[in-house]
Design a protein around this nucleic acid. Structure first.
Length: 440
DNA sequence: TGTCCACTGGAAGGGAGGGCTT
DNA sequence: AAGCCCTCCCTTCCAGTGGACA
């Protein structure tokens, strides 16, 4: 591959002239492809025609939702399971299936008693849409094609959005199934008002009905729900256990067969991806990412086939990319807090306390001409950085010395520095050494 | 056993910005 | 234009906390 690329500047291209547009891509196009056309098959968001090792969960959920096809309201369902255990895939898979089944039955027959068998499916990821208003508006807008009639993303009183939603569900008739993925994020951020509304909406509907399928990877979030909401929402419960290495291997083998050219990858690659993902609580998402990224790395290298070595490279790349992306997208103030922690660590003083980090942060703000935020706000940034895994903040009591958090970097300071200097807003602060004495 | 320290983290509320209604 | 509602970001206030120390 590298040899081929070296030939780009041949006799036709004079000396240091850039190669022609065609010749830049030629070596890549001549390569024997590793991926078949649709490489998205290896993305966790792809829903295959068959979901291995989830038959029991599919059967259970299908039996609950099938009530909708008979014109009844299915029970609300609570689904629990760790990341990458197939919760979202199963919900979407059945959502597509039920919409299709309902469409096939209801459409040719038109209006009539069969109207009851209409099923409408809405999927919402509550990490993206995380406010009460947002969820209600999102559901309402799902059925409005005319842009002018859409519910604005802000501006209306929530009650009005709720009334509009009720009207729409009634006008549509049939059963509307709403999947609220990562529901715990919504509850922790905005409370359970929206669940209260959605689970009691059937009392106010005359023609339509609504069922909620709530998905969470946090078993404890129900403790934060009002007792009425908890009982209405948890009419049925379903748990998705983690996949073991063998099951992950089956999932990967199925996807590899669809996405990769036969004979272009070692069989051991599948086993290795599965084993690495199994170590992390059987996360299929992680396993698929590993396989896809190793394939992409091998392709970029022009390797004759995908081998275990690329899986190891992919593992490191994914870990690094994850940190890079998170740090890059941090808000400015959060980045300055992170630089304050980085600076303390670089001074070789080991872990620092909240007070020390705040002093360094204020110092950095003064230096850069930014107005520093209060310590209370900075405490929140520290918690967020800890949650993202960029730093480690352990609560520790020093007796009379008070109680505070001991803060240290959770990622390599070299890699962190690389990402931070990319941002011109904070570039000059990265190597700044804050004063060590306490500020007034 | 009570005191004290340096916070933590919840609650309440201000204000800016976006948008709708009258 | 004025009034209202919503979200987001932030400040202010303050009760609560764990453990060393007197």
């Amino acid at each position: 591959m590298h040899g081929t690329r070296a030939k780009r500047g041949d006799a036709k291209t004079l000396g240091h002239e850039n190669p022609s547009a065609e010749s830049i891509f030629k070596p890549y196009l001549q390569q024997r492809p590793l991926f078949k056309k649709d490489r998205d098959i290896l993305r966790p968001s792809y829903i295959p025609e068959r979901l291995p090792h989830r038959d029991m969960q599919i059967d259970t959920l299908a039996s609950i939702l099938s009530t909708a096809l008979k014109g009844g309201r299915p029970s609300n369902v609570l689904i629990f399971g760790k990341t990458g255990t197939g919760k979202t895939a199963v919900a979407k898979y059945l959502g597509n299936a039920i919409s299709k089944a309902a469409g096939e039955r209801a459409l040719p027959l038109g209006v009539g008693p069969e109207e009851l068998a209409r099923v409408h499916f809405v999927y919402i990821n509550c990490e993206v849409v995380d406010t009460q208003y947002g969820v209600l508006a999102h559901i309402g807008n799902r059925f409005i094609s005319d842009w002018d009639e859409r519910i604005p993303f802000t501006g209306w009183p929530t009650e009005k959005v709720y009334d509009q939603l009720k009207r729409q569900i009634d006008e549509l008739g049939g059963v509307t199934v709403i999947v609220l993925d990562e529901i715990d994020k919504l509850v922790y951020k905005s409370g359970d008002d929206v669940l209260f509304h959605l689970t009691q909406i059937n009392d106010d509907l005359s023609r339509g009905a609504l069922s909620v399928v709530a998905i969470s990877n946090d078993l404890k979030f129900t403790e934060f729900l009002d007792a009425r909401v908890r009982s209405r929402l948890g009419e049925e419960r379903l748990v998705f256990p983690p996949y073991n290495a063998k099951q992950l291997q089956d999932i990967l083998a199925q996807r590899a067969e669809l996405a990769l050219e036969a004979g272009m990858y070692d069989e051991s690659v599948i086993a290795l991806c599965a084993a690495l993902a199994a170590q992390e609580h059987g996360d299929a998402r992680r396993a698929l990412d590993l396989l896809r990224v190793s394939g992409e790395l091998a392709e970029r290298d022009g390797a004759p086939r995908l081998t275990d070595a690329y899986v190891v490279k992919a593992k490191n790349k994914i870990e690094l990319d994850c940190v890079t992306e998170v740090v890059r997208t941090l808000p400015l103030q959060s980045k300055i807090v992170l630089i304050a922690i980085y600076a303390s660590e670089n001074r070789g003083e080991g872990a620092s306390t909240t007070g020390e980090v705040y002093d360094a942060y204020r110092d950095l703000c003064r230096r850069a001409g930014y107005t520093p935020l209060t310590q209370r706000r900075v405490t929140d940034f520290i918690s967020e950085l800890d949650m993202l895994g960029i730093i480690t903040a352990r609560l520790k009591s020093f007796g009379r010395g008070g109680r505070t958090r001991e803060i240290s970097l959770g990622v390599s300071s070299g890699e962190l520095r690389q990402v931070l200097v990319e941002d011109e807003m904070v570039r000059d602060l990265v190597d700044f050494v804050p004063t060590q004495q306490k500020l007034p």
